[in-house]
Every structure is written in structure tokens, then in C-alpha cells.
Design a binder for these strands. Structure first.
Length: 393
DNA sequence: CGGTCCCGCCAGGTC
DNA sequence: GACCTGGCGGGACCG
């Protein structure tokens, strides 16, 4: 994966991530659903040294998407540590560097959940950098006692107020939060971090997250959300879409680190390009930010995207960059895709060996800074670079 | 026809 | 009461 910094006259440089293989950040996004394009554009817009905070209105305007969609993006990004909510309408940008720590946190939570089956711990001191909190999902189903054991377990641990004899009801707001996209993202990731199987279909994931015995409607809704999440995680190279051996159903394989009993799951070479389902909202020229409504520039609705190249060109045009030679390579080169670019087994084996302590690295890296916001991000980016350099990402 | 996922309604929360 | 958040699911699109 290459990190391109596009410098434009009179404007702060813009960073894009791209590479030749389809699992690279930019290509996946361009080949994937528009939601991913927004996501990619969002990251491209804000993953810069001089960006400290992210305003939702600003993001919606600059990306030309309705505000509602920005909420989805920031919720997912927040859940994997790339953003931290600071105030209403305002987030602090952490960036890719926040991902390792967030994953480590999730893994820790998962493992703690598994290891304390009988005695739910009460310590959930600071999940702040991952999410507001982690509530249990039990309320969800008065009828759903077949609740996913793994999940309810992990969640009960995450919730300090979750006593064994607690009443089976809770505030609506909590109930609502339980179903948030962010929490669902985290729980989806936890599935990968704790399960033994290599891949999982969204149906299966929905079952595990929701528990058996749910109405088909419920399941369907959950799967819808998982599609959104899976697309983003794919964009980040944390998972990849595959085909289940024994069925037509697609499944997702974890590409990130921190599997439960091993260091890393090595990504297999990609098989085929993801189809473009639709091209809603791919026109980034739409900068009219009427709350909740998009204007008529979304007229390409329903038309299939011809190819990623068009989108790429379009994106470049929007950025005022038509010529690749104008690009300047940025400071680092995340290693996720590098593995895939080279397809070098030897390298992968080496990486596998050193992967075990990536969490320690992520959690122990504590440089000294003065500006809390900036420093938090710098710290995260340093961690990212460190892990990348060691081939841990 | 089933897998995807766009889209925006609207309920709940916050200011 | 206005505005912010974001769950939710109908239904369009596509292979």
C-alpha cells in the first residue's frame, strides 16, 4: 500500500492510500459500494498531519454526502479507534494508528470474557478510546435466551453495571446504544478475534451476535448492518471477502492480527474483483449540504459503476489532480498490503513470527507529548509505523 | 431470486 | 422547540 500525499497549490496536502492490488485501501473503495467510496474519501480528507478535529457538517459538505451517512462512517471509525468523539458534531481524528490499540483492546475484552465465564469481572475501567461503553445485549431478547453465549458473555463483562441479578430491563437509550453500528462493529471484530474458524458468513455472524431464535426480520436487519461494517473493514484490510467452500454464500476472513491463539492470519491472494453493485453518491461534486437530503447531482443513481478507474479519475478530478506524476509519496507505507503486493511467503512467515507481541508494542509505546490531541494522534501514528516496520500490520 | 446496500423516516437524545 | 444522532427496514439494484 502506498501513501500518497497530494500537494495542491494553496491547500493543505491530501493523503490517499492506494496500491495495485485490489485489497489495497483505495482500490477496494473504488471498486466497492459507494458507501466505501465515501469512507475512503473521508479518510483521505482527514488523515493529514494538520487535521485535529473533524466536523460532521464539514465532512458532509466536503464529501458531498448527506449528513446521515457521515454518522455511519464516524461510528465505525470510532469503534476501531480511528476517531474519538469530542463533542456534539465534533470528533478528534486519530487515524490508522489508533487501530492496533483498539484491536488490542477488543481482543483483551474478548479474552477476558472467555476466561471469566463464571465470575464476571467488574472492572471495565477505560474503554473510552474504543467506545463509550459496552453494554450487554440481553435486553434485546426477552425471548432470546439462546443469545450468543460468547457475545452476551463478553458484553456482560464490559458492562460494569451488569449484575447477575440485575433487572431484565434497562433504559431505552442503553438499549439503543446496544444496537449501535459502532458496537456491532466491535462485536463483529470480536467474533474474529475469538472464534476458531477461519471465515464466517454474515448470516452466521448475525446469528452469533444476535443469538438463535430471532425473528427473520431481526436477522435481516442485522445482516444489513453487517454488510456496511464488512465493507469498511475490508477497506481497512482487516477482513477480506471470500467464498465459502461448501456453499455459494460469501464469507469474510480476518486479515488483521490478534487471533486468539496465534499471531496472525495470513491473507491469501485475492481471487476476484468485488462487483460494483451500484453507484449511488459517487459524484463527489455534490457539495450541497442540505441536511438529510441530497440534491439532484445524485442523478447517477442506480447506474452501475463501469470500473474503478472511472471512479479513481473522478476522485482525482475532484481533488484537482489528474496526473499521477504530481503525487508525492508520503511518509509511510502500511504493511498490510505490502504483504499482498509481494505475495512473498517468506516475508509473511517472518511477520507471523514476530506478530505475537504486537499488542504489547501498541500498548507500551508511550512517547511524551505536550499537546494532548495532537500527541495522541502522533502516538498512534508512531505505533502504526512501528508495527508496520516490523511487519506486524 | 437471493445477496447487497441505498436511502430517508422518525424516535430518542441534547442543547 | 430546534437540532443532533442514528436505528431501522423498505425496496431498488444486480448477478
Amino acid at each position: 500500500m502506498f501513501c500518497w500525499t497530494i500537494s495542491k497549490r494553496d491547500e493543505a496536502p491530501l493523503t490517499l492510500y492506494a496500491s495495485r492490488n485490489r485489497y489495497s485501501f483505495l482500490e477496494v473503495d473504488l471498486a466497492g459500494p459507494p458507501w466505501c467510496v465515501w469512507f475512503a474519501s473521508f479518510v483521505a480528507l482527514y488523515d493529514r498531519e494538520d487535521v485535529e478535529s473533524v466536523g460532521l457538517d464539514d465532512a458532509a459538505r466536503r464529501l458531498g454526502v448527506e449528513r446521515r451517512r457521515i454518522y455511519d462512517i464516524v461510528n465505525v471509525l470510532e469503534s476501531i479507534g480511528m476517531l474519538v468523539r469530542r463533542a456534539k458534531n465534533r470528533y478528534t481524528w486519530i487515524g490508522f494508528g489508533g487501530v492496533p490499540a483498539a484491536l488490542a483492546k477488543l481482543k483483551e475484552m474478548s479474552l477476558r470474557a472467555v476466561s471469566s465465564v463464571a465470575s464476571p469481572s467488574l472492572d471495565e475501567t477505560s474503554a473510552a478510546n474504543v467506545s463509550d461503553d459496552e453494554d450487554d445485549d440481553k435486553l434485546d431478547d426477552a425471548e432470546g435466551d439462546a443469545e450468543s453465549e460468547k457475545l452476551s458473555l463478553s458484553q456482560s463483562i464490559d458492562n460494569p453495571s451488569d449484575k447477575p441479578d440485575a433487572p431484565p430491563c434497562k433504559l431505552r437509550s442503553e438499549h439503543r446504544k446496544e444496537k449501535s453500528l459502532g458496537l456491532l462493529t466491535q462485536n463483529f471484530v470480536k467474533l474474529f478475534l475469538t472464534m476458531e474458524i477461519e471465515t464466517i458468513s454474515l448470516d452466521e455472524a448475525a446469528k452469533r451476535l444476535l443469538g438463535e431464535g430471532h425473528a427473520a426480520n431481526n436477522m435481516r436487519t442485522k445482516v444489513r448492518r453487517l454488510y456496511d461494517i464488512a465493507n469498511v473493514l475490508s477497506s481497512l484490510n482487516l477482513i477480506e471477502k471470500t467464498q465459502q467452500a461448501d456453499s455459494r454464500k460469501p464469507a469474510f476472513r480476518w486479515l488483521g492480527q490478534a487471533k486468539r491463539n496465534e499471531g496472525v492470519t495470513v491473507a491469501l491472494p485475492p481471487t476476484k474483483t468485488l462487483p460494483n453493485k451500484r453507484a449511488f453518491g459517487t459524484d463527489l461534486t455534490n457539495i450541497d449540504n442540505k441536511r438529510g437530503k441530497l440534491d439532484s447531482t445524485m442523478e447517477n443513481r442506480g447506474k452501475p459503476t463501469q470500473d474503478g478507474g472511472n471512479l479513481f479519475n473522478n476522485l482525482q478530478r475532484q481533488l484537482g489532480q489528474e496526473n499521477r506524476s504530481d503525487f508525492v509519496y508520503g511518509p509511510f507505507h502500511p504493511a498490510v498490503a505490502r504483504k499482498q503486493e509481494h505475495g512473498n511467503r517468506t516475508v509473511q512467515e517472518k511477520e507471523r513470527k514476530s506478530i505475537q507481541d504486537w499488542e504489547n508494542l501498541a500498548s507500551s509505546f508511550r512517547p511524551q507529548y505536550q499537546n494532548p490531541v495532537l500527541h495522541k494522534r502522533q502516538e498512534a501514528n508512531e505505533t502504526w509505523k512501528l508495527l508496520s516496520a516490523r511487519g506486524l500490520l
